[in-house]
Amino acid sequence: MRVERAAWVDWYDDGRRSAVLVDDQVIVLSTLATSMVRHVVGGTLVDDLVTALVTEFGAPDGGDAHTATQAAVRDLVECGVLAEVTT
């Protein structure tokens, strides 16, 4: 699966956390989600996000990094921060 940044209005990034303005809603992102958005450039493979996040934060305790990243990507797609690339 590939993802890209959705067409949101604005993004405030304080260096750790951030907030994205999607339509008329402000979505505050955690440090991990902020890092994910930073790593998404064009059509980014989820596998590449997994590698980047494990490098930056380490593997999740008691879980699978790929499964956790896929779940986070799905959440960001659902709220309009990321969009799945279908082509």
Score class of each variant (00 low, 15 high):
50 V>C: 11
46 V>I: 15
64 D>T: 11
56 E>F: 10
41 V>I: 14
42 G>K: 06
51 T>D: 13
43 G>R: 09
50 V>D: 07
69 T>D: 08
60 P>T: 09
51 T>V: 14
33 A>H: 10
43 G>W: 04
41 V>S: 08
65 A>S: 14
55 T>R: 13
34 T>P: 05
41 V>K: 05
70 Q>R: 15
43 G>P: 15
63 G>F: 01
68 A>Y: 01
47 D>Q: 14
59 A>Q: 07
34 T>Y: 00
66 H>G: 12
39 H>E: 00
34 T>V: 04
33 A>G: 09
64 D>W: 03
45 L>W: 10
34 T>M: 01
38 R>I: 00
45 L>I: 03
33 A>M: 07
41 V>M: 05
52 A>Y: 05
38 R>T: 00
33 A>S: 11
41 V>L: 10
60 P>W: 01
60 P>M: 10
37 V>D: 04
41 V>C: 07
66 H>C: 12
38 R>K: 05
56 E>R: 13
59 A>Y: 08
44 T>E: 06
60 P>H: 04
51 T>R: 08
63 G>H: 09
67 T>C: 04
66 H>A: 15
49 L>S: 10
66 H>S: 14
38 R>W: 00
45 L>Q: 14
58 G>D: 12
61 D>E: 14
60 P>Q: 09
44 T>R: 03
47 D>Y: 06
35 S>C: 08
46 V>G: 06
51 T>E: 12
33 A>L: 08
52 A>S: 15
45 L>A: 15
59 A>M: 09
65 A>P: 14
50 V>W: 06
61 D>W: 03
42 G>I: 13
38 R>G: 00
48 D>K: 08
51 T>M: 03
55 T>D: 15
68 A>T: 03
50 V>P: 09
39 H>G: 02
52 A>N: 12
48 D>F: 01
61 D>N: 13
64 D>E: 13
36 M>Q: 02
49 L>G: 05
52 A>E: 09
57 F>H: 12
38 R>H: 06
62 G>L: 10
52 A>G: 12
36 M>V: 13
48 D>I: 03
54 V>Y: 07
69 T>Q: 03
52 A>T: 11
53 L>C: 04
43 G>F: 04
56 E>K: 12
